[in-house]
Structures are given as structure tokens and as C-alpha cells.
């Protein structure tokens, strides 16, 4: 399997341009947002510093620019659908950042809109194939069920990534690691158009991570987390790497699933009264022993004992790396040709 030389050059350019654009846009937001009073309190530090927020526009605008550039090069409608899904989810996130949607059901319902480009652009049957490819067993016909799954997938995945945005650098670091297996499987499938369209997700997350890592200079907000999650989901659908994507994003899916099953309803994370973690006087984080506190991934990590915020994030990224490894194994076990 040899990747053409010109493809490697274009991939490097796409990655570098997305990285540079996100870096510059985020830098601009870090300087301008606090002047406009757009800051959020960092609850996991004793000094409770005010951090610039939301950084999502820097993420999804740079991704949009590069994806549209790729669409004009390849003319592949799937790339356009990825760009539109990302943009719509980002705008919904911005609405949530600005007006703080209190009702837990509104955001998932709005996010169904973000999945529509995948279904609506499919008039010539070019966007998605309702035959997901499973490891070992090959592809399965899900002709009637698949569109319904598409409608449900974007809200589920983007909310799952949104719930990962709890500590400095957790979301952006997680997205970098979780996306690598997608690139690997798309190369194995020789779907170079979508492989190229996946690179902006890594490039943008990496540039944002520089500002988002501990101690954060900016938070992505819902506009960033929902856009990244929706883009990840769109790539999985149009690139036909659904199962690999599910395995790769397993920590986020389990996290949101554990939260929802412990609070027993669809809930906006801001409205959860009992916090899953406690900030100790030495600056470390500890798991709450309250029975009513939601069971989150962070609380499960901290159940072992108190840790610094940096260590918790490091553990989350290790879990992501383990999931990415399992996703690569899944890729190798998948008969892509069937």
C-alpha cells in the first residue's frame, strides 16, 4: 500500500494550513474575548481564574475554510457534508454558549439539524452507504434503519464530546488521539478524499490544545466541543468507518452514558447540582462521596485517590490512547473489501 507522493504533499499543506489558521484565530480570541467580558471561571483551581471563552469559532471557522478548499479541489459532496455538519453544530454550540439552553432536551433536538446535510445532500446516493462494515463479519445492509441512526448519531456523539470538556486540555487532547485511528482506517480503505478531510480535525485540535492545555488560556465552549464531535461523527458516517469511530471514542461514550444513567434523565451539565468532584485545599481534585453525585469518567479516575488536574487529564489521555489502540486493532480485523 503506497500513498502517492502528491497526496502526502497535499496532506501536509492541509494539516499545516488548518493548524496555522486555528492557532492564529485562537490567539486573537485569547486577546479579544476577555476585553469584551467573555470569560468563564475555571472551577478546578483554587484561584478560580477567569479564562477566555468560547474558543469554538476559532476551531470551526478554520475547519470550514480548509474543508471548503478541499471540496473545490475534489468536488466530493461528502466533504461538503462534513463542512456543513461541523458549521451547523458549531453555530448551535454558539447559541448555547450565548443563551445557555437550560432544558437538557433542546440541545440534542437542535443537533438533529446538524445531521441533515448528510441526509439531504444524498440525493444521488453519494454521501453515505447504508451498509456499515463490521469487524470480522463484513458489511451489513441497514437500508431503512441507517438514516434514522444518522439522525441520532450526530447529537449522541457531539454531546458525548461536549461532556468530555471538563478539564484543561481534556477535550482537545482527546480529539487528537481519537481521530488518528480514523485516518489509519481511511488510508487502509484507500478513501483518500475523506482521509484528507479528516486531517483538519487533528490539525485544529492540536493548535487549540496549545492554548487549552493546563493552565488553559481559553475554553472551547459548546461551540467548540459540539463542532468537533459532530465533525468526528460525520467523518465516521461518510467515510464508512463507523465501528472504528465508536471504539475510538469509547471513553466519551461511556462517560456520557455513565452520567445519563446515574442522573437518570437528559440533563444539561450546568444544571447538575451535586458536583462529581471536590477541590481540596491543596489544589488537588477528589471524587465526591455523595451518592447523588453523577458518576463521570473523572470521578471514576479520582475514585482511586486525589490527583492534580494535570494528572487527571493525563489519565484521560492514556485511556484515549488505549481506546485508539483498540480502534486500530478493530481496523485490522475489518474486511474492508467485502
Amino acid at each position: 500500500m503506497a500513498i502517492p507522493y502528491d497526496l502526502i504533499v497535499l496532506a501536509s499543506i492541509v494539516f499545516a494550513v488548518t493548524f496555522s489558521l486555528t492557532y492564529l484565530f485562537t490567539l486573537a480570541l485569547v486577546k479579544t474575548l476577555p476585553k469584551r467580558g467573555l470569560v468563564a471561571e475555571d472551577y478546578h483551581k483554587l484561584s478560580r481564574p477567569k479564562v477566555a471563552w468560547p474558543g469554538g469559532p476559532a476551531i470551526f471557522s478554520s475547519i470550514l475554510i480548509v474543508e471548503l478548499f478541499l471540496y473545490f479541489i475534489y468536488g466530493d459532496l461528502r466533504i461538503l457534508s462534513i463542512a456543513l455538519v461541523t458549521m451547523i453544530a458549531g453555530v448551535i454550540g454558539l447559541i448555547d454558549d450565548k443563551w445557555k439552553l437550560k432544558n437538557g432536551i433542546i440541545k440534542p433536538v437542535l443537533l438533529i439539524l446538524a445531521s441533515l446535510p448528510i441526509l439531504l445532500l444524498d440525493i444521488y446516493g453519494e454521501i453515505y452507504v447504508p451498509f456499515p462494515i463490521f469487524p470480522i463479519f463484513g458489511s451489513v445492509r441497514l437500508y431503512y434503519v441507517y438514516p434514522i441512526l444518522v439522525l441520532a448519531a450526530v447529537p449522541i456523539v457531539s454531546n458525548a464530546t461536549n461532556m468530555m470538556d471538563v478539564l484543561n486540555g481534556a477535550l482537545s487532547g482527546f480529539m487528537i488521539i481519537a481521530t488518528i485511528p480514523l485516518v489509519f482506517s481511511l488510508i487502509l480503505r484507500a478513501d483518500y478524499n475523506i482521509m484528507m478531510a479528516t486531517l483538519p480535525l487533528i490539525g485544529s485540535s492540536l493548535a487549540f490544545f496549545i492554548f487549552h492545555r493546563y493552565p488553559s488560556k481559553i475554553f472551547p465552549g459548546d461551540s467548540g466541543s459540539l463542532a468537533l464531535g459532530a465533525m468526528f461523527c460525520a467523518i465516521a458516517i461518510v467515510g464508512r468507518v463507523e465501528v472504528v469511530a465508536i471504539i475510538s471514542i469509547l471513553p466519551a461514550i461511556l462517560n456520557s452514558f455513565f452520567i445519563l444513567s446515574s442522573v437518570k434523565r437528559l440533563v444539561e451539565h450546568r444544571s447538575i447540582k451535586t458536583r462529581p468532584t471536590i477541590l481540596l485545599s491543596n489544589g488537588q481534585l477528589a471524587a465526591s462521596k455523595e451518592i447523588s453525585a453523577p458518576i463521570t469518567l473523572v470521578r471514576m479516575i479520582l475514585a482511586e485517590g486525589p490527583l492534580s488536574e494535570r494528572d487527571v487529564v493525563s489519565n484521560i489521555l492514556k485511556l484515549s490512547a488505549f481506546s485508539a489502540f483498540l480502534a486500530v486493532m478493530t481496523t485490522l480485523l475489518t474486511p474492508w473489501g467485502i
Binding site: 470480522i136 463479519f137 471513553p251 488505549f322 483498540l326
Partner: peptide
């Protein structure tokens, strides 16, 4: 990691049951 690894194994076990027992 144990829970994630176990979830991954259960997904494969589930796929085996679906493809070899339920689909036919």
C-alpha cells in the same frame, strides 16, 4: 482501561451473536 477493554470485548461478542445466531 479494564472497563473500556471489557466493553470492546463485549461489542465483539455481541457482533458474533448477532451475525451467527440472530441474522440467520
Amino acid at each position: 482501561m479494564g472497563i473500556i477493554g471489557f466493553a470492546w470485548l463485549l461489542i465483539f461478542l455481541g457482533l458474533y451473536i448477532i451475525f451467527y445466531l440472530i441474522v440467520p
